[in-house]
Design a protein around this nucleic acid. Structure first.
Lengths: 275, 275
DNA sequence: ATACTAGGCTATGTCAGACATAGGGTTCAA
DNA sequence: TTGAACCCTATGTCTGACATAGCCTAGTAT
């Protein structure tokens, strides 16, 4: 009807988000770099075929995420990467979706996970409810199913596996029933999908990883905080190997990926190393 | 001059932020509660004396922070608290500024800090640069100066002390040179200012706290990760006491989770939130 | 009587055009 | 060389209008 609809808002009703999304694709993929200027509003209007208010709406979103800064009378400049709100859910989604894997950045997220997930697992073992355990179990079964599909010979769906992997770890974060950690679950997605997209684990390696996840889940279910802590360390050791940070999945918890730190102190030997 | 200035944009050039700020004050103080509806746009225009685009701009900011949800044709509804992006710098500022201290929430942030700051301190001890150490030192001297002013008898400026306290811990977070932790430094402000606003430490207690901070700083400067870890635990033990979480600042690093809420918030047996 | 549809009302989403003002550069004079 | 006055550009804001999603109500058919 009315093909020449004047406003023609038949498509989406959320144009600002579309603008932000498209620009984010360029921002996160590195097409626009910090310090550079984005096209001016009128040019973006032209490029997207939308009115100025909608374009401004999109720019506003990016601005409130610390990704760009709007300078009155001058234009829109890309902020330094360090200023971006990397912990915002939308930003983490964009990272997982558009960013090309940056080894340095992945290593930093891993460093964070490596230091915290054992603690989180212990807390989860103390506080997890039946609902939390269910979420973990469903995610785990999803990983299992994806892996079996792969072993059945079909072409193997990496994204299905990594989605459930994300869900598994997020369930543990949420099981702490702590607002801060629950929100930090968002950084899992870029951390996991970016590595899965590039690395090439064998079926055997994945099965090993799955076993470690199962063990972690069992420790949480049985309410054994200390065992859960150790189990989480073993999961992270596996992840470190898949990320290429350690040469051996059973190698100790090398804390920092980059060893340029002038540490005259011996690194912390894991206190309870039950083999 | 031109009293009938039509546009009269004499005041600020950032009306959207003003709207967001004012609404945030109401949102964080509990005047608007999750599930409720905000006034409609035209009413807000009237209340703030601004045009619809500006008001929409402010609502857009709150929306992109997960604080409200805009429903086309219906209105603006306040999201559940758990959906708010509590890790966003602007949100943490609003929490520190407008939220009345919620014991439960403070306990959760403390739980997070208690679990992570020792690790962070150890990492900082490995990676801190001269610039990081300078930032820590300046913040520490700021705390010292504020405390001495207090002991000199003048009326004592809590906010000066807590600002430098925030800066001190933030410097440690940043000294890790890890993007994730650097961003997490933002949660320090509500955690610290909210407790300082309510608690009533004596000068002696503050001096004790200051000593623990100094020791932590020295351990980091001397690049002793393990000592820094322990020193951070002692700082957190002091903080736990000031928060009313533990009865004794030297009561070991009792993992706060199960022991919190001694007097003012009787702990529920079931962790389920459902009422 | 119940269920389903049609219509109207409300509040948000989008558009168009206009003016005001901050930032930055340029020109001209002291 | 330096300073001030000028102009241009791009963003910030306003006004007024229409389009559409969500919701409520009334009317009709079975």
């Amino acid at each position: 009807m009315s093909p020449a609809a004047s406003h023609s808002t038949n498509a989406s009703r959320d144009l600002g988000n579309r603008v932000a999304e498209e620009l984010a694709a360029g921002l996160f993929s590195g097409r626009y770099r910090p310090g550079e200027m984005l096209p001016k509003e009128t040019e973006l209007c032209d490029a997207f075929g939308m009115s100025r208010p909608s374009v401004r709406n999109g720019l506003q979103i990016l601005s409130s995420l610390g990704i760009v800064r709007r300078i009155s009378g001058k234009g829109t400049v890309v902020e330094e990467f360090r200023e971006w709100n990397l912990l915002d859910p939308m930003v983490t989604r964009w990272m997982a979706e558009y960013a090309q894997p940056n080894p340095n950045f992945l290593a930093e997220i891993f460093e964070f996970r490596h230091a915290t997930e054992p603690t989180i697992a212990a807390l989860a073992a103390r506080k997890a409810t039946a609902r939390d355990l269910l979420a973990m179990e469903e995610a785990f079964q999803g990983m299992e199913a994806a892996l079996e599909g792969a072993e059945a010979g079909e072409e193997w769906d990496r994204s299905a596996f990594s989605d459930h992997d994300v869900a598994f770890h997020a369930a543990i974060y949420r099981a702490t029933h702590n607002l801060v950690w629950a929100q930090l679950a968002h950084i899992l997605r870029p951390s996991i999908t970016l590595v899965v997209r590039t690395s090439n684990e064998t079926a055997e390696e994945l099965r090993d990883s799955l076993g470690r996840h199962r063990h972690l889940m069992e420790c949480i279910r049985l309410r054994r905080p200390e065992d859960a802590e150790e189990a989480a360390r073993r999961v992270m050791a596996r992840t470190a190997f898949d990320l290429g940070i350690t040469p051996d999945p059973d190698a100790g918890p090398g804390p920092a990926p980059n060893a340029h730190a002038p540490d005259d102190a011996p690194k912390k030997a894991s206190p309870h190393r039950r083999a």
